[in-house]
């Protein structure tokens, strides 16, 4: 739950601009981007996600590096992705 997972922003919800659909290694879910409201990320940009909230914007290289770190973590990462899949933020 402490893991920051990188996700690519796919779209911002027009009706709720603090929600965005992201793609985390193929898993597409809604997350909250309210913590980045000073300078909201745009589709195509990457964010680091903690427990359903984008905490910082990152570039693609950083996203790849973060993903490599997570994949190395093994079970904990799989648990996190499994939890994300269950997530039903809206």
């Amino acid at each position: 739950m402490c893991l920051g997972i990188p996700g690519e922003v796919i779209e911002i919800r027009a009706d709720q601009p603090d929600l965005a659909k992201v793609d985390v290694s193929g898993v597409k879910r809604l997350i909250n981007i309210g913590l980045l409201s000073d300078d909201p990320p745009q589709p195509g940009e990457w964010v680091l996600i903690h427990v359903g909230f984008a905490l910082s914007r990152i570039d693609e290289a950083e996203a790849a590096a973060a993903m490599e770190f997570l994949e190395g973590i093994g079970q904990a990462y799989e648990d996190e992705i499994a939890a994300l899949k269950e997530s039903m933020i809206d």
């Binding site: 909250n32 359903g52 909230f53 933020i89």
Partner: peptide, 11 residues
């Protein structure tokens, strides 16, 4: 219940 995010608890 296990949640991924506090927002899931809200739901």
């Amino acid at each position: 219940r296990m949640v991924y995010s506090p927002l899931d608890s809200l739901k």
